[in-house]
Design a protein around this nucleic acid. Structure first.
Lengths: 136, 136
DNA sequence: CTATTACCCTATCAAACTAATAGAGTTTTC
DNA sequence: GAAAACTCTATTAGTTTGATAGGGTAATAG
């Protein structure tokens, strides 16, 4: 299940990607437009800023804006920040690999085998989809 | 993240699929072999029996066994029982569709667009992978 | 320069879910 | 008829999620 955090984060990013210029957009404007709790959105945008996707400007006329062009924002990177590892199981994760403590041999494990396929296909989607692809 | 329930359920199914005949296997044997809490496994096997994947035999020499041949057990069906909907978001679910209460128009929603792709590719995997494919 | 705007941070909290455990009950077979 | 093994209900600790509250800090316009 996709977390609300990820859902809201993606919605905010697409909202910003749809903006004309690079003018900062206020949190409240995004929250209203996308029906998101403003306070919750704050923490999400903050994490997107800290991870280099967004910039922010304080004071009157401030807000958040995309740092890179939407065509250069890979969904794989966004998903890792918002949702965490793309793999459904740590033993098939590229960036967060961890051995299962119960499983004696990954080569034999059926779960491993299946989840490896799932990871590969999802990764391909997330790597080939840019933020710009999400706006109609 | 894959739940332990699903993980254990898949492991139990592959364990049963590896058996020679159709002889019932005791819960305790599966639990020991796969390092699973026996009581927890009980509830999982029970749900797999109720959904038609497993049969059980009581009394001495009893246990669980696969009802169908492993080549006929589609992972899509197994996953739906163990993990729930395959879609990461209800608005792209085939069997559990639900409209997002916040989203005014799915055709415009970027999340919808992305998750549709993910669902399609995952569904293809789960539909084309049989239980027999998971045993090496 | 100062008031306003808007970001930034910490803490808290209820609800839901997960994983595991306990214990008793029931059916079947030898 | 007793043992073996499945079946069921209830409980619980722990974690995560989503949301809220409230104040603090920085920057900008006028």
């Amino acid at each position: 299940m996709l977390s609300k955090k990820t859902k809201y984060g993606l919605k905010a990013l697409t909202f910003l990607a749809r903006q004309e210029g690079k003018k900062p957009v206020q949190i409240s404007e995004i929250a209203n437009a996308e029906n998101i709790s403003q306070k919750f959105l704050e923490t999400i945008l903050l994490s997107l800023r800290k991870t280099g996707f967004l910039g922010s400007k304080k004071g009157k006329g401030g807000g958040y804006y995309l740092i890179k062009d939407a065509t250069e924002v890979k969904m794989a990177d966004v998903m890792r920040v918002l949702e965490g590892p793309i793999a459904m199981v740590p033993c098939v994760s590229l960036n967060f690999y961890e051995k299962c403590d119960d499983c004696p041999d990954e080569a034999i494990c059926g779960v491993h085998k299946l989840m490896l396929q799932v990871r590969d296909s999802n990764l391909e989607i997330y790597r080939n989809t840019m933020l710009s692809d999400l706006i109609s």
